[in-house]
C-alpha cells in the first residue's frame, strides 16, 4: 500500500470521525476559534512532553561522541522553548489541567489499544492453517 493512499485514507477517515463526533456534540460544539486555540495548545503540550521523553530516552547514548549531546540539548531546547511560548500566551498547564489531560490520554490510548487488539485477533482468526510443504510431500508419496 503506497504512502499516498495511506495518507489519503487517513485524512478521509479523520474528516468522517470529526463530522460524526461534531454531530454528536450538536449545539454544544464550541466555536471554531475556541476549538482551534484549544487544539493548538494541546498540540504544544503534547510536543513538549514528547521531546522531553525522546531526550530522556537518548541518555544512554551520551558516551558515543558529540552528536547525542547536541541532539539531547536540541530536544531540551525545543521543549523549553515550547514551555516559554506557553508562558507568553498564558497557557502553562496547571496541576488540574495536566491531570485532566492525563486522564484523556489514558482514555484515548485504551480505546485505540482495544481496537488494535481486536483487529489483530480477527486477522489471526481469518488466517488459513499453514501446511508444511515437506509433510505434504510425504503424504503424496
Amino acid at each position: 500500500m503506497s504512502l499516498r493512499r495511506l495518507s489519503g485514507a487517513g485524512i478521509g477517515t479523520a474528516t468522517v470521525v470529526i463530522i460524526a463526533l461534531m454531530m454528536i456534540e450538536g449545539e454544544e460544539s464550541p466555536a471554531i476559534e475556541d476549538r482551534l486555540r484549544s487544539i493548538i495548545i494541546q498540540a504544544l503540550w503534547t510536543a513538549m512532553m514528547a521531546w522531553m521523553i525522546i531526550a530522556g530516552s537518548m541518555l544512554g547514548l551520551l558516551g558515543r561522541g558529540r552528536a547525542p549531546w547536541l541532539q539531547i540539548g536540541g530536544l531540551l531546547f525545543l521543549s523549553l522553548s515550547t514551555l516559554g511560548i506557553l508562558a507568553i500566551i498564558g497557557e502553562i498547564p496547571t496541576e488540574d489541567v495536566l491531570g485532566g489531560l492525563t486522564i484523556r490520554w489514558a482514555g484515548l490510548a485504551t480505546g485505540a489499544f482495544f481496537a488494535i487488539g481486536y483487529t489483530l485477533s480477527t486477522l489471526t482468526v481469518s488466517m488459513d492453517e499453514e501446511i508444511d510443504p515437506l509433510l505434504l510431500l510425504g503424504r503424496e508419496q
Binding site: T110, G111, A115
Partner: peptide, 9 residues
C-alpha cells in the same frame, strides 16, 4: 476519551 479513541482507531 476511550469511546473517541475506539471510534477513531
Amino acid at each position: 476519551s476511550s469511546i473517541v479513541g475506539l471510534i477513531t482507531t
